[in-house]
Write a protein that binds this DNA or RNA. Structure first.
Lengths: 106, 106
DNA sequence: GAGTGGCATCGATGACTGTCAATATAGACG
DNA sequence: CGTCTATATTGACAGTCATCGATGCCACTC
């Protein structure tokens, strides 16, 4: 297995974390907040889900390396990690570039 | 629910299709082929999975709008649809752009 | 038309996932 | 210390998913 393929497996794991409507909305909301961060209490209002469910999705995003969390007093703040999104964006962009002409099977 | 959010749900569905190591490898392989396409028989050699399983993953990619298939004689050719990948790449890039400064909860 | 190779579909199964109620933890404040 | 608020963890459950063997369908060839 090449290094490239290992990278693809990692990328697939991160994309899987993004491939849920709730998590994508949470991340998208974080991204448009000033500083790319928000406390959990504000995120709870975005989706009609229980607090443990939202906490679960945030954990998935955190374990995927897409967000980081920090406790400040009573509240916990989550923030986007742009460096995690950039290579994924680049990967998708590269796969959208088709070169050359199609060839038949033989 | 805003139009933006509907778009996010659609994007999440497409990202979910990408969030599998096998499917990401299949798509990545298609993207590097000349013309962005390949017959199924060539894709079968890429992964150590049964032919029905590969066919299943290709179907998922097709139903997500990421690839298109076409029969030419005995073989079926799959090709990348770049227009499906570009908006996703742009979405991830936009979420990687953090503006302003963080604000406390209150 | 009978046989062959390439690919799709079906049905079954074990594994994983999203969700919630209940409970735990951690900090703030009196 | 006791209480309140904010967030995390646990346990359970229903639904979804990845995988395979068996089978079906289609095109080509003889």
């Amino acid at each position: 297995m090449s290094i490239q393929e290992i990278g693809l497996d990692v990328a697939a794991g991160t994309l899987r974390a993004l491939g849920d409507p709730v998590r994508l909305r949470l991340l998208h909301e974080l991204a448009q907040r000033p500083g790319g961060e928000s406390c959990v209490c504000d995120l709870l209002g975005l989706v009609e889900l229980s607090q443990p469910t939202v906490s679960h999705h945030l954990k998935v995003l955190r374990e995927a390396g897409l967000v980081a969390s920090e406790r400040r007093g009573t509240w916990v703040y989550y923030r986007v990690i742009p460096e995690a999104l950039q290579p994924l964006s680049a990967l998708l962009a590269s796969m959208a570039e088709v070169s050359g002409t199609a060839q038949d099977c033989r």
